[in-house]
Nucleic acid binder design. Structure first.
Lengths: 248, 248
DNA sequence: ATGTTTTTGAATGTTTATGATTGTTTTTTA
DNA sequence: TAAAAAACAATCATAAACATTCAAAAACAT
């Protein structure tokens, strides 16, 4: 019997029962214990099952997810509030740049029906805009795995072809001394270029980003207007350096 | 026994069982192990099966149920056959351009696991590539409503930044006199540029496109290799002008 | 008919899969 | 808690499957 056949048999049996004994599999496949042990080790490494003493169980696949989802949901109201506020700065006839990110993506629904041209480096945002029938330009570049954003040198080059009235960007760190910072240098390059090319730039960030510093510097605080949602006092110190809009 | 006969037998047996042992095939075809091994290697390279130790299995292609539009399209099998054949020209280490279109998009599954860099102007293709963890560059440009492709002058400019080994393009018309043609001038501009920049260019078209002429000329027939699926005699006249690969 | 290319099967050394054996760890039983 | 039983990981030799090479045979073109 072929290895792959055994693997299929094991997974099939497991999906029926959700727990299976090693001895059972030895009988089922007419193989030695050693072989079945190896199979279970391999299948576990591939994430198909979880070994237990005496056999294997179906992996509980959906346990880790909620942590990430919950975390995102906590700030989801703030995000929409910030996005809504930011969108109010956009007037008919304008061209705007929407940087990749969940907060900027949340702006898209507020563009519905407006007469705007959008430039973006985000595939998800481009898809959303496509559904709304908004004139859209996508800048070129390398597709970054984690964020589905187009980044790097080519993205900067491509972006130079566009001039926009307003640019809206997400950010990872907002700090009095370090300014706006983000972890990925290639993303930072794109953000920096966007701020340079726009007539006015807006950074969208909830107050969980305040005081944080990431590796790559995008711009000093005064280079952009900060759109946030905060009742903490930390806003006031930023307010002395650059213009701040509170969505609250 | 002819090679093609053996291949058909192997695929037939495989479609019946979905896994088959090498020894089984040796018996079935009365050929040597060496020959069967060669067959399996070839068929794997063409994307028909996956070799495993001791035999071969059907490709674990996640069976996407065809949408209504796809179902209505009676050329869907031809499309996959053409895409499969076209993908065999791609070798590890190459960079390729995938033009927007359903046929070129059908090539994406056959890139799984290959060591390639892909440049594309298609948002759907970029999304598919994203799922396969393939290094991807997207060219910039205006997002065209009907096809979700990036086109126009900016797309051409952005594409100039890349050199690819192979370019794969769909087309609307293949005509002896008019050459390759497509309705949208902005798309034609992008296609034309792709053919210029690629070391070799392949046009993917089923024989329903033969003899058709659209508004915008992309290139003369001899500028690219035609990959098609046809048993009609109309192929032979094209064959006298440019290289033709029949996926049949 | 002749030379060339393609296909084939055998021979080779190499890699991979397997089952038995060992001693260790975990679980069960007394 | 201690002893026995079961399950385990690690190692080894063997056998099966493998890629590669080569020479003969077949198909092909000239």
């Amino acid at each position: 019997m072929l290895t792959k056949q055994r693997h299929q048999l094991i997974l099939q049996r497991l999906s029926e029962q959700k727990i299976v004994k090693l001895k059972e599999l030895v009988e089922l496949t007419a193989s030695s214990e050693s072989t079945i042990r190896r199979d279970l080790t391999d299948l576990e490494a591939e994430g198909y099952l979880e070994r237990v003493h005496g056999g294997a169980t179906l992996v509980a696949r959906y346990e880790e997810e909620p942590t990430f989802e919950e975390k995102r949901d906590q700030h989801v109201d703030e995000k929409v509030a910030i996005a809504r506020k930011a969108a109010t700065f956009i007037e008919d006839g304008m061209s705007v740049y929407l940087d990749a990110g969940t907060t900027t993506q949340a702006m898209v629904p507020f563009l519905d029906g407006k007469d705007v041209i959008v430039v973006t480096n985000s595939l998800p945002i481009a898809n959303d805009l496509f559904d709304l029938d908004i004139k859209t330009f996508v800048i070129g570049g390398e597709l970054k795995r984690s964020t589905q954003a187009l980044v790097g040198y080519n993205a900067r080059e491509s972006m130079m072809n566009y001039r926009v009235d307003l640019a809206f960007l997400g950010i990872n760190g907002v700090d009095l001394e370090a300014g706006y910072t983000t972890p990925d240098p290639e993303e930072a390059l794109v953000k920096k270029t966007a701020i340079e090319l726009a007539r006015e730039a807006y950074i969208l960030a909830d107050d969980s980003k305040f005081g944080k510093r990431s590796f790559s510097r995008v711009a000093p605080l005064e280079a952009a207007t900060l759109v946030t949602w905060s009742d903490s006092s930390s806003v006031s110190s930023i307010q002395s350096i650059t213009k701040v809009v509170n969505a609250q």
